[in-house]
Design a protein around this nucleic acid. Structure first.
Lengths: 406, 406
DNA sequence: CGAGTTTGTTCTTTGCCAGAACATTCGCGC
DNA sequence: GCGCGAATGTTCTGGCAAAGAACAAACTCG
């Protein structure tokens, strides 16, 4: 049951049914390709004539294409339909504290080329560098294919609509327009999004064919901070001030270490990679000094994870402690949102086999119901480049989104 | 951007635009009544002819009615339209631990008659008592008007669709079908809902005319426990297992008092009315003994609140402590959901002037941004019977809800 | 009392869904 | 090789609702 917003509704016109049915058809093809017109007619419970009519428009638009006919037990051989994704390109850009990644993908998020460089603090220089690298990448790998958009992912709050980066502490950006300069430099439409939300969008829109796509889930990113992209009723939760999903600053205890946010005992001060590293080094976590300490020590989270996998006690202990607190944090998400699953991303997922039992136990101890305790917790490896896939989703998803009506 | 669920979509038919536009029109009349056809045409950006056509159907359905013509500076006098709510009745039932309330209202949630009795532990006897009281109430007050539904509100988890009460600890109900027996006893369709969600629905659907209706907010109920009804993107958040919104069991600190849920330091053990009362009596809170202690002492939360209003130091101190922890709890909601406002219901709101500064200060200390710190916190007095209004909303809201398409 | 203005109704046109009819293409059996 | 049945895909006609013009109604003002 959804309320109609009478201040910003979209009334139905004579073309509305067509818009809706075109989108349903496109999504059905996407999830069941290859699929014939007759099969689509059965699934949508409309006549085959209607399907011919609708597909003709989608083919003319370039959204679908016809493949070969295939064998069938009897009768005329059906002609299969596919979504045109392979020759429609996206450049996904992931700007992080230390490195910036650029990936060329198709509309399905399949990687074509990958590039990375040290993040340049000066913003104008960064845009120039991006311009050069994206142009080179397109020249070398695009061929005749067309790049239809750039999906830019940043570790921070992004204003919906304008694409303005409101606050990205790791980059030191406050109220920065990154979309404008990049769009001007490359002449391609740019979409900007917060990293955890982008990861969630990738899960929602670029999921495996045939896999049940969840409509209520949380994507938790464990890196220098803890972020979360929350999806409820098939839509991302942004909240009034674009700051929803800040589970990283939910306190686990009132008298814990001080966090950068000014609070005490935030989830983040126990479970971020910085916290895990400090623990590994035997140092108390202090948000102001952690970064300096770690650059001087030279140890990275990837190293701690691989040492834990190799069986080094100090590393496994540090990670177990992280897992304990992470479990407590995930329990809060389960209580407040009751998601159908939680996806965890970040370097520590490489050691998931060590972490999972501890996380599961902590959740079990804190769950209100047995069903809640069984909420699937799914790791996503950093090697799948979830942020970059999210960037691809930013560009390709609007093609498949439900039309905004009423 | 919303994803189309290809497993349970509703395709658009030839009548879909009509359905959508009828609902938009109905909602516009509701929020701007009295309103003329010409004004509706301007707001919907359609021709007046179309409005005549659509209103004719709504009038035939009995959803709208024509009022008198009114003066206008020049030209033909417009004929005003109204939503027919006054002669369409709802029986709202609120079953609580100690008392059960029955209210007869119209479709706008306006009270016509109110009745209450001690909650009967035996379920069959309770249903018989409800049957008798509802019948008497309808006989005495309904007149020629028709009761179109019963909205039943319970303090516990309710399964969407079946109306089954999965777990209501205060009533000792587990997996109870209350809808079936009441429907059978009275022959009127029954809708069952969890109390905090019902309160949120009342806010969303029975808000004041002309007032901006928020599409992202949280309704927090402070009573024997802490509950929350969460609305995101104009829809209630239920989650996978109908257990979303359990902010009452989010821990504020890891080593606090033990809660009934088995956790430690839950928001509920600091801020529920039981906790406040124990604090007032100078007793440590223990969930298992609290209820017995309070029945023996005979003090109620309403008394503590009135003593605080009278200036009794022990009472104001107890409430201030509650407000401090409640502020910490609300800060968690603001961080995770970024709502446009939080509504607080319960007896303690009578002392809101004492509580508000403390709550505001605690939220301010814990907010990530200035905007978040300014999130409006709005009290709703118990005298407004929010649960019963929620019961009314359960019946009347579906009439106004957006059609389910795509 | 007529001109001007606004409201509300009626009527025609246009576009899309719905469903029947038709064309196409295959396997199978004689 | 040819007819038949079956399934796919296309075309055509009908009906309904939106769009918008034309018209009727009702009021004010000079």
């Amino acid at each position: 049951m959804r309320k109609i917003n009478t201040r910003s509704f979209v009334r139905a016109t004579r073309w509305t049914p067509r818009e809706i049915n075109l989108q349903i058809l496109l999504n059905l093809v996407r999830e069941h390709e290859p699929i014939s017109r007759a099969e689509l007619a059965r699934r949508m419970k409309i006549g085959r004539g209607m399907v011919t009519y609708l597909t003709a428009e989608l083919i003319a638009q370039g959204a679908l294409y016809e493949g070969d006919t295939v064998d069938s037990p009897r009768g005329r051989r059906p002609q299969m339909l596919y979504v045109r994704t392979q020759d429609r390109l996206v450049v996904a850009i992931d700007i992080r504290f230390s490195s910036t990644f650029v990936m060329l993908t198709d509309f399905s998020g399949n990687s074509i080329a990958l590039d990375s460089f040290d993040t340049i603090p000066d913003r104008e220089a960064l845009v120039r560098e991006l311009q050069a690298r994206v142009r080179r990448m397109l020249a070398e790998h695009a061929g005749a294919r067309h790049c239809e958009g750039i999906g830019l992912v940043v570790p921070g709050m992004v204003e919906q609509g304008t694409g303005r980066v409101l606050n990205a502490p790791q980059l030191g950006w406050r109220n920065v327009d990154i979309r404008g300069p990049v769009e001007a430099a490359l002449g391609i439409p740019v979409h900007v999004e917060n990293a955890p939300i982008a990861c969630a969008l990738a899960r929602m829109w670029l999921g495996q064919r045939g896999a049940a796509v969840p409509t209520d889930f949380v994507y938790v990113t464990v890196s220098d901070g803890i972020g979360a992209g929350v999806v409820v009723n098939g839509q991302v939760v942004r909240g009034q001030t674009n700051s929803a999903g800040e589970f990283g600053h939910v306190p686990l205890t009132a008298d814990g270490p001080t966090c950068l946010c000014g609070g005490h005992g935030c989830l983040e001060v126990y479970t971020s990679n910085l916290a895990t590293l400090c623990r590994y080094l035997g140092q108390d976590f202090s948000p102001s000094t952690a970064r300096a300490l770690l650059t001087s020590s030279g140890v990275t989270i990837a190293e701690v994870v691989s040492r834990a996998l190799a069986g080094e006690r100090r590393a496994t202990d540090a990670l177990q402690e992280t897992a304990r607190h992470l479990g407590a944090g995930l329990a809060v998400m389960i209580k407040t949102l009751s998601p159908s699953q939680i996806i965890v991303g970040g370097e520590i997922t490489e050691a998931w086999e060590q972490l999972a039992p501890t996380i599961r136990r902590e959740i079990g101890e804190r769950s209100l119901t047995d069903l809640a305790a069984e909420t699937p917790i799914v790791p996503e490896l950093a090697s799948a480049y979830p942020r970059l896939r999210g960037g691809a989703a930013l560009v390709s998803a609007p093609l498949f989104a439900a039309p905004r009506i009423a």
